[in-house]
Design a protein around this nucleic acid. Structure first.
Lengths: 191, 191
DNA sequence: CCCGAAACGGACTTCTCCTTCCACTTTATA
DNA sequence: TATAAAGTGGAAGGAGAAGTCCGTTTCGGG
């Protein structure tokens, strides 16, 4: 669907595009949701014009970041389904890896939580994510490791809250998303 | 400390102050962190000037809201310590009541998560909250209902994540903070 | 090596809010 | 009820951040 017409991009343009994305990630992580376009440009070592050449609006830039983020997470979830080991252990390592991703992409949780519009952007990735998650918890239920009444939404909520906690580590040094996985995700275990 | 010199306020002023606070709460709940001062004024049925008479800046208004919010939650936690019943049940009802509060004060979670400065504002309430929480989980551990390694920070994280989930119910209808309490808080139980 | 197209940079414009200011209204006191 | 003080409303000011525009630079095929 929507086969993007492959148009070769000039080498420097592609390089700059990457620099901008990387700078934006860093800037959002440290400044939160109100990171500024000129600052992103400065951090990337380019002019604002260049940023706008690649992303017509700030919103588009955020969307690209968010899409990329969710895409990676969906990949990880799919990998967790096919991985070796007990379902429960795979579930927990998925949570851990997601935690790591969220910790390095700080600021994005707020973007997703804050806007209704962005939900459309991640629809496709979320479908993949749900599919993978569903299989994972079904396996877990089958082996009696995951609680009987567990649902995909439970996992979604846990993942989102994990992202929030990872986000908050910026401002709250007493928080630890790793510890959070140990505690909150334990609630999914069968008793 | 800081004995606020009691100065009688004119009746209409006090009424308007309440209207502004109420309107601000509603506006932040529906618009999120970027609710606008003129909109708050409009919703309260007053002019912007009046809003600024009571709260010198937008920040001050948010602070008042946040302080009030945490103050109520700290009250609830203290009540939970002294309440009847099993420690575990009191812990869960505390979580539930907090969920209710967060659900009606939507938008504040983001305010707290987003700014380092606001942490100072709630310092006093948080101390009270920590004290109450500590007692609650100690009782729970003593009766073998709460996991041995539970800490106050665990509870803080759970409460904050609960607030985030309640917040997200605006944009994500598949989320339910009540269900979240059933799942995530279960991770605090002794096994 | 040359030239046209693509990409760049950053000063400048535009737009969106927060906040101020002050003439006017309401309250409380004598 | 008259008067001073307190409070009010909303137009206008101002700060700051998003986005535009165009002269200059860089790339890559011939």
């Amino acid at each position: 669907m929507t086969a993007t017409t492959e148009k070769p991009m000039r080498a420097d343009a592609r390089r700059n595009r990457e620099k901008v994305i990387e700078a934006a990630r860093a800037e959002f992580a440290s400044e939160g949701q109100d990171a500024q376009m000129p600052d992103i440009a400065k951090r990337a070592g380019v002019g604002v014009g260049t940023v706008y050449r690649h992303f017509p609006t700030k919103e588009a830039l955020v969307e690209a970041l968010v899409r990329d983020h969710f895409s990676r997470i969906a990949d990880l979830a799919e990998a967790a389904v096919d991985a070796e080991g007990e379902p429960w252990d795979r579930f927990i390592s998925l949570a851990t890896i997601c935690g790591e991703r969220c910790a390095s992409d700080r600021g994005l949780a707020a973007a997703v939580a804050g806007s209704r519009e962005i939900l459309g952007v991640i629809a496709e990735q979320e479908t993949r994510l749900r599919a993978a998650t569903t299989r994972l918890i079904e396996e877990g239920r089958a082996t009696g490791q995951v609680r009987e009444d567990a649902t995909v939404e439970d996992v979604s909520m846990l993942m989102c809250s994990l992202a929030c906690i990872a986000d908050m580590e910026n401002t709250r040094p007493d928080f630890s998303w790793r510890r959070y996985v140990e505690v909150a995700f334990e609630g999914m275990r069968a008793r």
